[in-house]
């Protein structure tokens, strides 16, 4: 089924107007599907400016682009008017280091990351490698665009980099490599088996917000989401009326919001809010704050009518 001539002309114009055009579900700031989100994350590491077309807002283009490209799925990437591919192909091009050339940018030099493996982790990994590894299978460390790490036993890929620490060799793919430099890999033995812990200094940290900044933002009626992550008993003792109590319904509502929504977390002293903020950053939220010192400092410096406990 050929797309209507008008749609075809519209698409031709779109791919001629900009050098790099991504047809996706949602927007760059708020992708509405995992495949689109993955491609945005990859492109963001290469280029700062590119055009995106939200097919969910343009049903004609959504159907039209599939016929136009002879490609059944969204997202679809066009560079200089040429169809490049969908999510899988873009990932492959990134891993094989061909994407920079495809996008017409200077490829970033790929530096072998330095990682540190603690003694406990090294012992466990050596045992795993001996038991499950082989000439073509090794331990792989991956770090995705949200800085979530993964450790797996997998077949070796042509362009994997071997990184050695404490007598253990880990394979790291090229996309992960840039995000893995400086990682410390630790482990503890538990009755359920080994539990690994990755400390990655490259992971973005939630931003600190002082109680004064919070007060200002509330007074100015800025648009943002404020969540108190303490349990109901503590909220009953002391609370800020503007803050919503984090619970299942609120968590669900937050997760459905655009990922560029400004989100602020509050707790008693600032530790639990920091953990909550880190959690939502890992889920892809980009503008996340934790209130320093929590409601305790709020009652000392902003509103003495809020009891301390």
């Amino acid at each position: 089924m050929a797309p209507a001539e008008a749609t075809r002309q519209q698409i031709t114009k779109l791919i001629e107007n900009d050098e790099i055009v991504l047809f996706m579900k949602g927007t760059r700031g708020a992708p509405q599907c995992g495949f689109s989100a993955t491609v945005v994350q990859i492109l963001d590491t290469y280029v700062s400016e590119y055009a995106t077309i939200d097919v969910l807002a343009n049903p004609d283009i959504r159907d039209g682009i599939k016929a136009f490209s002879s490609w059944p799925t969204i997202p679809q990437l066009y560079v200089k008017g040429e169809f490049v591919g969908g999510c899988d192909i873009i990932k492959e091009l990134a891993v094989s280091n061909e994407l920079a050339e495809t996008l017409g940018v200077t490829p970033a030099p790929v530096v072998t990351p330095k990682i540190q493996i603690t003694d406990t982790a090294a012992n466990i990994l050596r045992a795993l490698q001996a038991q499950h590894g082989g000439p073509d299978r090794s331990l792989h460390l991956s770090v995705d665009a949200r800085y979530q790490s993964g450790l797996s036993m997998a077949p070796n890929q042509a362009l994997d980099m071997a990184v050695e620490s404490n007598g253990v060799t880990l394979m790291i793919d090229r996309l992960s490599a840039g995000r893995a430099d400086g990682i410390t890999l630790d482990a503890t033995e538990t009755p359920q088996g080994p539990s690994f812990k990755v400390d990655n200094p490259n992971a973005p940290q939630p931003k600190p917000m002082s109680v004064q900044q919070l007060k200002q933002a509330l007074d100015a009626e800025e648009s943002f989401e404020l969540f108190d992550v303490r349990p109901p008993e503590e909220l009953a003792t002391a609370s800020i009326p503007a803050a919503s109590q984090m619970n299942e319904q609120e968590a669900e509502r937050l997760e459905s919001l655009p990922k560029n929504t400004k989100v602020v977390f509050l707790c008693h002293h600032g530790l639990r809010s920091q953990a909550a903020a880190a959690h939502y950053m890992a889920l892809g939220f980009s503008d996340v704050y934790s209130v320093e010192g929590g409601i305790d400092v709020w009652s000392q410096e902003v509103d003495p009518s809020v009891p301390r406990y």
Binding site: M1, D63, K66, A67, S70, W71, P72
Partner: peptide
């Protein structure tokens, strides 16, 4: 994909 596009539309 071009050959089977109509089955996926």
């Amino acid at each position: 994909y071009g050959a089977i596009a109509h089955l996926m539309a």
